[in-house]
């Protein structure tokens, strides 16, 4: 497949490349606690809502998860479960929120909702597999940091949608 041979798939590939790129940036940022994810790679997903069809959205999700697994090197470990659970639940919730509320919710709300789903499912898996009892101690920390980071990401995504000319052009092509 060559670029532009199929514009829609092309666009999904571009978005997923951005997700990969953001994953790399996130991987390089030193984290005081290893399992706290900033969720930078979610930004393409948040922006894709309203632009992509459901199938395209889920294709992007698949590519994003695969890419993240490759970059962080966790693709064959049980850590991929965390990433999968977090990404899938977050993506589904975000899609739900957007489909239910369309224009009545901004990217900020979508982002926060997604982060809630992601953090809760990751805490659940942590309780079962990795940290067990310790999860109860980490939980408040995870939840609060997830809340704050998702707000910032949501604001950034919202800003992008409003101000980017590239995005406007893509939107016109998509309608």
């Amino acid at each position: 497949m060559t670029p532009h041979s199929n514009t829609r798939v092309d666009l999904v590939a571009l978005f997923s490349a951005c997700a990969l790129f953001l994953s790399t940036i996130e991987y390089m940022i030193p984290k005081p606690i290893p399992f706290m994810r900033l969720g930078l790679a979610n930004i393409p997903l948040i922006i894709a809502l309203g632009l992509f069809s459901k199938r395209e959205y889920f294709l992007l999700l698949l590519l994003k998860v695969l890419g993240q697994g490759l970059i962080s090197g966790t693709i064959f470990s049980y850590i991929i479960l965390f990433s999968l659970a977090g990404s899938i639940s977050s993506a589904i919730i975000m899609l739900l929120i957007y489909t239910l509320f369309k224009d009545k919710v901004s990217r900020v709300g979508i982002s926060i909702g997604g982060a809630l789903g992601s953090t809760l499912s990751q805490l659940l898996i942590s309780r079962l597999i990795l940290f067990k009892e310790a999860t109860y101690v980490i939980a408040p920390l995870f939840l609060f940091s997830g809340l704050i980071s998702s707000i910032i990401l949501g604001l950034a995504a919202q800003r992008f949608i409003v101000m980017s000319k590239w995005y406007q052009t893509m939107k016109e092509i998509s309608v």
């Binding site: 497949m1 571009l14 990969l20």
Partner: peptide, 11 residues
């Protein structure tokens, strides 16, 4: 596989 190649190409 083709889409993934494209993803990495853009990356």
């Amino acid at each position: 596989g083709a889409v993934i190649s494209l993803q990495f190409y853009y990356f």
